[in-house]
């Protein structure tokens, strides 16, 4: 079985994004606290750890794209998270904005309230847009949800 890099990155990215989203939305405000039962510490812990992994996965996919363009490989990768058009480009831009504002929040939390205010505002609203876009993405790729016809497909595999 050949496992493709873009396929693995796509699902790693989805898992990390889900973790970041649930822990992040639990920290947005008092109205949202119920999502993780008001356990701010857990949310903070999960958010920071998965942010580190998220940055690593993003860097890996960017390096992969750069390597591909150095090799002049213009083939369209259907599963890759970043790309030059469409939802891939949207993901790329949103990821960059989220990472940069997240880093700003990370360092500004001890001083510079203007910086953290600006970064938190952008971070929060961009993540609403990104969540809506994920739902739209599920709608577009809905065929992945249809269950395979069991009898014949299993027989063909065997």
């Amino acid at each position: 079985m050949n496992i493709r890099f873009d396929f693995v990155v796509h699902w790693l990215y989805a898992i990390l994004w889900a973790l970041l989203a649930i822990s992040g939305f639990a920290m947005v405000g008092a109205k949202y606290g119920w999502i993780l039962n008001f356990s701010y510490a857990t949310a903070d812990y999960v958010h920071r750890l998965s942010a580190g992994l998220f940055v690593i996965v993003t860097l890996a996919s960017i390096v992969y794209e750069v390597w591909r363009s150095i090799r002049n490989d213009n083939k369209y990768l259907a599963w890759h998270v970043i790309g030059r058009s469409g939802y891939q480009l949207f993901t790329f831009i949103v990821t960059l904005i989220l990472i940069i504002t997240g880093a700003l929040i990370w360092i500004c939390i001890e001083f510079n309230m203007a910086g953290i205010g600006f970064a938190l505002f952008v971070h929060e609203y961009i993540s609403y847009i990104a969540l809506a876009s994920v739902i739209w993405h599920i709608y577009m790729k809905c065929h992945a949800l249809t269950w395979p016809k069991k009898a014949d497909s299993r027989k063909q595999k065997a």
Binding site: G29, K31, Y125
Partner: peptide, 22 residues
């Protein structure tokens, strides 16, 4: 604390702010 952190911070610290303050 009756709104989200982003909105709160915006109201509290971001009214009338410039790049210089950042």
């Amino acid at each position: 604390m009756d709104t989200s952190m982003g909105n709160m911070m915006k109201g509290k610290h971001l009214s009338g702010i410039t790049i210089y303050d950042l």
